[in-house]
């Protein structure tokens, strides 16, 4: 706390996760999916660090790596200077980082009553005694705006939004320092979402929390975050302070993302039916770069591409306090 706001909480260094997965209909040879590819960034104490990008770009895989829920292919993760190695079962570090999952359906144990689910991490980490589980979880439910009586119910008896509030309550129950929020409100209705966002902001202010906030909603990034990190095809495209980003991002893909929220309007909807590229989920294969590992992942869709972009791969480069992964960013030095 005394080393100020600028102290590093999380530092990610050249992290990668490659899945060797499916064979295709016409080609049964195994394909490699680079869900997270050579990613590096720092998160500082007190930050709300948001990660955006479209579906399948690797956001959830990245959060699973941070939590040690999946093995990395290469790279390192440091928590306050200590290397995180989940195989060593460093429990004291583990409880400092908690996650709220995107999918409220599969993340709750269907056979357990709500109060057991909510209090389990707190009991495991010896924050409360087992006999206080009920009382403790009632308090946590209140915190996330749920009726206390839900403690006796099972997850399947609750609607989607109610379940997501349970998983937020569960992760808050161990007083974590770093919270990874993987689309925490995307399954919630407006009124509950408003409540959860207010709650997350209050908790952040009062408890010295640091958030990694994964979302696909740029409106939310603007509402919540200090920094925004744009991902595409498993790679980081841009890391920028939020106000600068909304004034005009530097990466061509960031521009497209920003335009797509501005175009959001009733008469504009139909035009999107034929737009877009079906290969979006298969970026590595589509660009044909998996063989020689060269070239920019965004090449196929990019409006600013040049020959150089298919020959060489750009790297994250600093432009003032913005980092951009592009040979030709929208940057003027004046």
């Amino acid at each position: 706390m005394d080393n100020g706001k600028d102290s590093e909480v999380l530092s990610i260094n050249k992290l990668s996760k490659h899945y060797s997965g499916y064979g295709s209909l016409f080609n049964f040879k195994k394909n490699i999916i680079k869900a997270v590819d050579n990613v590096s960034f720092n998160v500082y104490k007190g930050d709300i660090f948001s990660i955006v990008g479209e579906t399948g770009c690797g956001k959830s895989t990245l959060s699973k790596l941070i939590l040690g829920l999946t093995n990395r292919s290469s790279g390192e993760i440091f928590y306050k200077g200590n290397i995180l190695n989940y195989n060593l079962k460093k429990l004291d570090l583990r409880k400092k980082i908690q996650i709220v999952f995107q999918d409220p359906y599969s993340s709750l144990n269907p056979k357990k009553k709500i109060y057991k689910i909510v209090s389990l991490p707190a009991i495991k980490n010896k924050i409360i005694k087992k006999k206080d589980a009920l009382e403790h979880s009632m308090q946590m439910l209140k915190k996330v705006g749920l009726d206390e009586n839900y403690v006796f119910k099972f997850p399947h008896e609750l609607s989607g939004g109610q379940r997501q509030r349970i998983s937020i309550a569960r992760s808050l129950s161990v007083n974590p320092e770093l919270l990874v929020l993987d689309e925490p409100v995307s399954a919630l209705d407006v009124s509950v979402s408003a409540q959860i966002l207010n709650l997350l902001l209050d908790l952040h202010e009062k408890n010295d929390l640091t958030y990694i906030f994964i979302t696909h909603d740029l409106r939310l990034v603007r509402h919540m975050a200090d920094k925004v990190c744009v991902m595409y095809g498993g790679k980081i495209m841009e890391i920028s302070p939020v106000d600068k980003f909304f004034d005009g991002p530097l990466h061509p893909y960031s521009r497209v993302l920003l335009e797509s929220i501005l175009a959001y309007g009733p008469k504009n909807i139909l035009q999107f039916a034929d737009a877009g590229n079906i290969n979006i989920n298969n970026i590595n294969a589509a660009t044909g770069i998996e063989k020689n590992n060269r070239g920019c992942v965004y090449y196929n869709l990019c409006s600013r591409r040049e020959v150089q972009c298919i020959k060489n791969e750009p790297e994250l480069k600093e432009y003032g306090d913005v980092q951009v992964n592009c040979f030709f960013p929208y940057y003027s030095s004046v």
Binding site: S186, V256, L257, I261, I269, A273, G276
Partner: peptide
Amino acid sequence: TALDVKTSLQVLALIE
């Protein structure tokens, strides 16, 4: 609900 902005727009457009 679970989709990003770009894909969500696309799905809405397809339903339209």
